[in-house]
């Protein structure tokens, strides 16, 4: 099943939503509303609110790096994420914002073991 969703992550045609990472040269990450909606309460609320993002089919993020968002997207689609000493703290903080509770817990545990 997770393989199927991983394939879906590469299927550009069916994607219906854009995540824009704000920087000098904006980066666009394409994805599926339906998947995001059921995996993250942040996105669920965003779609439900029917505010400007759901009308434009695009959200602009100011405080999340491209790498981090790609990691999260991979996690959202496949349930897999790689945590190491390099990124653990950043993952913990950012995952909270997107209500990815499992990752937050996992990262917190990871950090605790190393303090």
């Amino acid at each position: 099943l997770s393989q199927n969703f991983e394939d879906l992550l590469l299927d550009e045609n069916s994607k219906d939503f854009t995540i824009e990472i704000e920087s000098e040269k904006p980066i666009y990450l394409r994805c599926h509303k339906a998947i995001l909606n059921c995996r993250s309460d942040y996105f669920k609320a965003l779609f439900r609110s029917k505010m400007i993002e759901s009308q434009q089919g695009k959200v602009v993020l100011h405080d999340t790096s491209k790498e981090m968002m790609e990691k999260f997207l991979k996690y959202i689609y496949t349930g897999k994420i790689e945590i190491n000493e390099e990124n653990a703290v950043e993952i913990l903080i950012s995952s909270r914002k997107f209500c990815l509770d499992q990752i937050s817990e996992f990262a917190a545990k990871f950090i605790k073991q190393r303090i």
Binding site: L46, S49, K50, M51, I52
Partner: peptide, 15 residues
């Protein structure tokens, strides 16, 4: 009148 607001902006503010 919510349709012109940006969810991410509001969410980020409260965050």
């Amino acid at each position: 009148n919510a349709s012109t607001l940006s969810f991410e902006e509001l969410y980020r503010s409260s965050y």
